[in-house]
């Protein structure tokens, strides 16, 4: 018996099946639109509210009781310095931990538990990190409500992101490259430092910057450890004219950061402060987007030279 469908039947079948293609294309487009349109609406709203306030004075003035004189100088300087501490702390720790897990750790149940937990840490609510840091950094280590404490707190927060991204980057290096290096008599450290590390830098950078972009917007843990909401002075300058030229006093200075400044302004009743918050939001958004742009650029530029 011939069970093959006739040409007419096949055509009817194709038409029927293609309806699902179309249906999913429509659903997918709608889903995408919800996300994009929401972002565009938020951004446009912030742009309309904040744009008139955004000028040079806004960036170079301290906060003030008079909204038209208030600025975000202490906030963006604070955010930048905190991010600096975060990067300096999180990158070496995260990269070293990832290299250990991928290249050195014996494959046993202890390693497995550590691996699962590192991944889970990425999902811990940020306020929990804030509480931990309050107890550990602020009180136990006596760091106080300082830039150093805030930077270390956010470093903890992004550590899992850095570790996971670094591990992914390391894993994408084919084993043929590892074996090639070992076959020439390389030790494990020679293999790691001369191959694994240089080849995974694009992936590591991407992870670090995505983590930093998350950290710069974090409010809860920074409030928990006691960032100020009103601060009218800058931390001591890190570079000085006199010997020894570098100063680390700024690490212990009190501070505020961009999202806290915004939060403070949005909680005020005056409409003029709402405009300030929107303007600060724009600046924060620009900071985040430029970090992402940098990540994309670096990844593109560095990956060009790496191919298997």
């Amino acid at each position: 018996m011939n069970t093959a469908p006739s040409v007419a039947e096949v055509r009817a079948l194709i038409v029927k099946h293609k309806r699902w293609d179309l249906a999913f294309a429509v659903i997918g487009t709608l889903a995408l639109m919800v996300g994009i349109l929401t972002f565009v609406a938020l951004f446009a709203d912030m742009l309309i509210d904040g744009m008139p306030r955004l000028n040079y004075d806004f960036l170079t003035s301290f906060p003030s009781r008079r909204p038209e004189q208030a600025g975000i100088l202490s906030a963006w300087v604070g955010s930048t310095l905190v991010m600096l501490v975060t990067a300096v702390a999180a990158v070496p720790l995260g990269v070293a931990a990832a290299i250990y897990l991928e290249e050195y750790a014996p494959k046993n149940w202890v390693t497995e538990i550590i691996e699962v937990n590192v991944t889970n840490l990425a999902g811990v609510p940020s306020i929990v990190y804030g509480l931990l840091a309050l107890g550990l950094f602020v009180y136990q280590f006596g760091l106080g409500q300082s830039i150093l404490a805030a930077g270390l707190t956010l470093a903890l927060l992004i550590l899992p992101v850095v570790i996971v991204a670094t591990r992914e980057a390391i894993r994408s290096i084919p084993s043929a490259i590892r074996e090639g290096a070992y076959a020439l008599g390389a030790t494990r450290w020679q293999m790691v430092s001369q191959h694994i590390l240089p080849y995974s830098i694009p992936g590591i950078l991407t992870g670090v910057i995505i983590g930093m972009a998350r950290a710069i917007g974090e409010t809860a843990p920074v409030i928990t450890i006691g960032a100020l909401t009103f601060i009218a002075f800058l931390p001591p300058t890190p570079i000085s004219g006199a010997f020894p030229f570098l100063s680390f006093e700024w690490l212990t200075a009190p501070f505020t950061v961009m999202p806290i400044q915004m939060f403070n302004w949005t909680s005020r009743p005056e409409a003029a402060f709402q405009a300030n918050a929107a303007a600060a939001g724009l600046v924060l958004l620009v900071m985040t987007l430029s970090m992402n742009a940098l990540a994309i650029y670096l990844r593109y530029k560095l990956r060009k030279n790496i191919q298997w």
Binding site: A176, A181, G185, A186, N305
Partner: peptide
């Protein structure tokens, strides 16, 4: 094994030049 690999070289199935 590093001593062994310093005396004996290997060429692999698929060319595996370093980047």
């Amino acid at each position: 094994p590093i001593e062994v690999r310093m005396r004996i070289s290997m060429v692999f199935q698929k060319p595996n030049p370093f980047p």
